[in-house]
Design a protein around this nucleic acid. Structure first.
Lengths: 345, 345
DNA sequence: AACTTTTTTGCAATCGATTGCAAAATAAAT
DNA sequence: ATTTATTTTGCAATCGATTGCAAAAAAGTT
């Protein structure tokens, strides 16, 4: 078993077996040209001496780190935790490890994280953009060196970068259609920074659903803020003061929706009776608030798996960057009480 | 600026400046023995040629990875996201990067993650234990090689490993005392696996608070499960069926507490009127549920910072492992409506 | 037994950065 | 101008694993 103190190298194994380090190196990685018996011996001695491969030496020689970088806005959601788990699963199987960091929704951090990853020579990067990222020049370092960059969830339209996300437009469209179907006519949409696809697309879906149902789009009913609790409460208050009062709120995420519900109830109004509310993401708290929240569900684990596979594929078949453009995953409308004005049939 | 294609090494810089690679190496890291002018030139050329240090070569030579491993049960809470952010802050400042992985509450994953980190030659490891971890032999690899391991939050009593957590006993004691002070006499405690300090200590605090207030400890009132939503609901149902009916539930985490509240309300009873409820952790959802949840708050960011500092210190002053044993951070009782039987004074 | 073919192995260079030691260059002192 | 002290630099070995190429060993043919 492993001994204390000094590290064992292939040279130590070679010496003990009276063979060359080259053979040990080949033997350890099951090179076909090595005699089966020798291989067995090498493996046995390696184990017995407590050998562990030195990845620095190997990486140095191979000019490859076997590390995939992941930059996300925040790790604090079930969604993101699932994404990471999905990525880990695929990536580990392919022999890579992860280098994860959070931008905390600030472009500034995103930039420095990207630099750190570049300097650590990651073999590929998975990115979900920060709230306030205005450009993606900080990823050009990677493309210049042919290091694949894949965006997921918070993606950006760019010929160079493949991406994975759900159809936010369609999801929002179906959600708003549902609200309309429930009899809502003045639907407020609370969204985030319109530079982020997830918010812009949801807004478009909202607008199109209105249009397709002959409902006018009233600019006043579109509220864009930073989706924090405070902004959610402020937005809710604003809605409550509008005349005529809107009969529904579609918030771009669950946390915002939930805080709207609380605020509406605090004002003595009923959800969904007076105002129906819907969110996006199907967070845990969607089933904690009362009434439970109608929302859009999509699978983080799956998204992580796909994103990871995309990167791994690029690494396995370099030069095919252009083949895969973008991938759209499915999402699902989850109808709960917060939007049910009519009794369920 | 950075060129496309090939990587620049110190040899390229050396050649361009007609000096030796040794000087370039020293110049780049501000070695005192290098002429100021030469340094300036080296830095300038490095920039201009788009040089980035090759960490593999450097790590190989220095026998040091500058990577800190972090193993956590799950990344899905605000708490954990804050911890990671705190760790990142300290660790980055000291020139390290993070290698994060989740055990998903399974010892099996924790073991393989630990191995992966060991093989990647992390310089230190920060760990919060999985739900079902029964022993910590998988960390002996590290101690044998004098690689520091620091536990945080979900810690374990062990002379070899320093740890950081809050005083779960005291926190639970103060929380239960508060419930008693509100007039509760039959208090249920729902907890998790008692092998985890966080749960065992909370249970102890609960029991001691009862004792100090002349309340009998009824075994039936201590429910141990896995704290999932399903278990929470089952536990709540059990409580509702008890005779005489308990007048309070102290759950070992907020998610469990929240689901109890929902279940109690579903049964037509009032919280806190019929049954007071309290949780632990001050998750976002504590303020989503109605009534808002009384709970214990403690700062993940701080905990991350401290844990990281501890590891960094150990790395800076090796051999002082025994100096720092364990650190107890403060926590705070947050009283909200879910436990207020008496009107606030 | 001599020769050809096939399997196995080893030599030695390579991947870049680092650093002890000594040499060279410069500055200071005589 | 010499000698001594001080700064700067460079040489060359080292950190382990990898791999093209060639040599050695084993197996197969005549």
């Amino acid at each position: 078993m492993a001994e204390t103190g000094k590290e064992i190298t292939i040279y130590d194994i070679a010496q003990k077996l009276n063979i060359s380090a080259a053979t040990v190196s080949r033997g350890l990685k099951d090179h076909p040209g090595v005699n089966k018996n020798t291989k067995r011996k090498i493996l046995a001695t390696a184990n017995e001496m407590g050998y562990r491969s030195n990845s620095f030496a190997s990486n140095l020689r191979n000019r490859k780190s076997n590390i995939i970088g992941v930059i996300v806005p925040r790790l604090n959601s079930n969604f993101m935790s699932d994404v990471i788990a999905g990525i880990e699963k695929v990536v580990n199987k392919a022999g890579y490890t992860l280098f994860i960091s959070q931008s905390l929704e600030l472009m500034q951090n995103e930039v420095s994280n990207a630099k750190a990853m570049f300097n650590n020579r990651v073999d590929g990067v998975l990115v979900s953009l920060a709230y306030d990222t205005t450009n993606i020049e900080h990823f050009e370092f990677f493309t210049k060196r042919d290091i694949p960059v894949v965006f997921f969830d918070r993606v950006i339209e760019h010929a160079k970068y493949p991406s994975i996300c759900i159809d936010n437009y369609k999801a929002a469209y179906s959600l708003v259609s549902h609200l309309i179907e429930q009899g809502c006519k003045r639907i407020v949409h609370i969204s985030g920074d319109q530079r982020r696809n997830v918010y812009a697309d949801r807004t478009r879906g909202y607008q199109q659903a209105l249009k397709d149902n002959q409902l006018p789009f009233d600019k006043e009913l579109l509220i864009v803020n930073d989706l924090t609790k405070e902004s959610a409460i402020a937005a809710a208050k604003k809605v409550l003061g509008m005349k005529p009062r809107p009969d529904a709120i579609f918030a771009a995420n669950d946390y915002c929706a939930v805080n709207c519900i609380l605020e509406i109830k605090k004002a003595g109004l009923k959800v969904p009776g007076d105002i129906a509310v819907a969110g996006f993401n199907n967070d845990q708290m969607a089933c904690v608030v009362e009434p439970h929240l109608t929302t859009i569900d999509y699978k983080g684990f799956e998204m992580g798996e796909f994103a990871a596979r995309m990167i791994i594929n690029h690494l396995a078949n370099p030069g095919e960057l252009q083949n895969t453009h973008s991938l759209i995953l499915r999402s699902e409308l989850i109808i709960r009480e917060s939007s049910l004005k009519k009794p369920a049939i």
